[in-house]
């Protein structure tokens, strides 16, 4: 059985339908990319998944449990961490405080301390700046913080929304390297990206979203060489 199963999801913003019945699944340990143009519904999909937007129809099953109507603040405890579009770090708080908020639902202080060490090891830059306000970090550093913060909840699946957006090429490579490391350490990854080439290069499988529908899906490698995908999303 798939770890995460999305079935026939319909989502509306007022009268405008953003998702027109999308279905996909994510298996344990996979890296799944969701690619598509602006406005295709990628962010909406992730926000519906973590309860920020209500679904009108359809279901989301995570590890056998129906989480379609679970409120957003209870999702992280179930093992799903969401790295939102535009990082959304708490700019007034220090890097350290942001990371602590990532572990908000966890109780064991010792284990939280362990996770903090792991995150600092993975992102040495965050340790250097742990007492700095998050708002003073560069875009790439904020992205690292947003990812570190999500990892602080010890998620079994991490969903990431446009982690490479607005970053310099050096940071983009760094961020994708980190995603690989996160995946190799056993966390399942669901990745939404406009940078389709990069996303497909690290993903196992991918789904292509087009105006609220999934138009294509398959092995990332195959999609990378698919002519229509190349034309539409890879700029070749």
């Amino acid at each position: 059985m798939a770890m995460l199963e999305v079935k026939d999801l319909h989502v509306y913003y007022g009268v405008i339908q953003a998702l027109k019945g999308i279905s996909f699944e994510v298996n344990q340990g996979e890296v799944i990319a969701l690619i598509g143009a602006n406005g295709a519904g990628k962010t909406t999909t992730l926000q519906t998944l973590t309860g920020l937007i209500p679904a009108k129809q359809g279901s989301i099953i995570f590890e056998g449990k129906d989480i379609t109507r679970v409120p957003a603040h209870k999702i992280v405890e179930m093992g799903i961490a969401h790295v939102p579009e535009g990082r959304r770090v708490f700019s007034q708080l220090s890097v350290y405080e942001n990371l602590l908020l990532g572990a908000y639902t966890r109780k064991d202080k010792k284990e939280i301390e362990e996770s903090l060490k792991t995150v600092y090891k993975r992102f040495p830059r965050l340790e250097e700046r742990k007492n700095q306000r998050a708002g003073t970090l560069s875009g790439g550093e904020q992205q690292m913080l947003a990812m570190g913060r999500a990892l602080m909840s010890k998620p079994r699946i991490i969903v990431m929304d446009e982690p490479s957006m607005g970053l310099s090429p050096i940071f983009v490579n760094e961020i994708f390297d980190i995603i690989k490391v996160v995946s190799e350490s056993g966390t399942t990854v669901l990745l939404v990206e406009q940078n389709a080439k990069k996303a497909l290069s690290i993903a196992d499988r991918a789904y292509v979203l087009e105006t609220g529908r999934i138009s294509l899906s398959g092995k990332a490698e195959d999609l990378l060489h698919d002519e229509s995908v190349q034309k539409a999303y890879l700029g070749e």
Partner: peptide, 24 residues
Amino acid sequence: TKPGRAMQAVSEDRDAAQLMGVNV
């Protein structure tokens, strides 16, 4: 304190706070 930090988080970004598990 933890509830205090939750307050600051909600104050700055309600959605992001919810994603951390904070009950707004």
